[in-house]
Computed example of a mutant assay.
Amino acid sequence: MSAIDAIVGRPDDGGREHPGVLLFADAFGLRPQIQAMADRIASWGYVVLAPHLFHRDGTVAELAPQGDLRTPEGREAAIGQAMTRVRALTPDLIVADAADHVAALRGLVGVADGPLGATGYCMGGAVAVRTACARPDDIAAVGSFHAGRLATDAPDSPHLGLADARAAFVFAHADQDPSMPPEAIALLERTLSEHGLEFASATYPDAPHGFTMADTSSYQEAGAERHYRELRDLLAARL
């Protein structure tokens, strides 16, 4: 993975070593909002790598969202443009990329030996879960925020891999998100419990899908700030 295929955030502390965190973006991909999020997480004392998940479909610049994501119309148009590549990123490809993502993060200057964290947003939440299942010796903490379709009746549903995970999880669901209804949340929580995994799962009130993304019309400040607090506590406890 080359330098242009990822965003990196670093603490501003003179180059000491810190734990590493993978950040998996939403369907709109790498952009200034993701850099801002990576930098904020890095300010807590982590080296953050946000990989370009759609590297098979084009460069970051080629796939950059068109239009104004802060309007409902602009956001919906961008979703329509992104869905082809989202559907093409199959579970097998996510698992194949997981080794490269972990290696790229561990290869960055300033990343300490030891457990890694992962945080994912929208579709990136499922990527974070699958990465933890595929790399249990590496990923010790996972945050998943406003992710959809984490627990379905599909044979490749993300929750079915949790038997292989050893991470602690924090899930934050949006109560206005039809892609993660109450019955899916219940199935996810039941599966986590069955496998003896440490987890917290909450449904944020009045929250739309995508509530953390300050550059879109779905942004909700209360939910976004709550997510940062819960993610920070998780990473501090496990890394």
Rank of each mutant, 00 (worst) to 15 (best):
A222Q: 15
A82E: 02
D13S: 02
I4Y: 11
G29N: 07
V8P: 12
E194V: 02
L235Y: 09
D113R: 13
A237M: 01
R10G: 03
F171V: 04
A3F: 08
T90V: 06
A78S: 07
H227R: 08
H55I: 02
L187E: 15
A36V: 05
T59M: 10
A96F: 00
A214N: 04
A96D: 15
A236V: 01
G45Q: 06
F145R: 00
A165P: 13
V47F: 01
P182A: 13
S179R: 15
G124F: 08
A50S: 11
P51T: 09
H159A: 09
R85H: 03
H209Q: 10
S144W: 06
R40W: 11
I139N: 15
P91T: 07
A134Q: 10
R85C: 00
L30N: 06
I139A: 13
F199T: 14
L30K: 00
L187A: 15
D215N: 12
I7Y: 08
A64T: 09
L30Y: 07
V8Q: 04
Q66Y: 05
D138H: 03
T90A: 06
L23H: 08
V170D: 14
R85D: 02
A200H: 08
A163C: 11
E76Y: 01
Q176A: 14
I139F: 11
G120I: 03
G14E: 00
T84G: 14
S217C: 13
M1R: 13
F169R: 10
S218M: 15
A174H: 11
R106K: 15
M37D: 12
V8A: 05
T203H: 07
E221W: 13
G148F: 03
P208Q: 05
H227G: 12
A27P: 13
H195D: 14
E225Q: 14
A42G: 03
H146M: 06
R10A: 09
L49S: 05
G196M: 03
T90H: 04
D5S: 13
H146R: 10
P32L: 05
A132D: 11
D137M: 13
G67H: 12
A200N: 12
M213W: 06
T152K: 07
A134M: 03
G143Q: 03
D137Q: 09
F28D: 04
F28K: 08
D156P: 10
H227V: 04
G15L: 03
F54P: 11
L116M: 04
R75D: 06
P72W: 04
A186P: 11
A186F: 01
D5F: 03
A50F: 05
A168T: 09
G210L: 01
L63S: 00
P65W: 07
L188H: 15
A88I: 09
H159Q: 14
F24R: 01
A6G: 13
V109G: 02
G80H: 05
L93A: 00
R70V: 03
G161W: 04
A172S: 15
E230V: 03
C122W: 04
E194M: 10
S2L: 08
C122D: 10
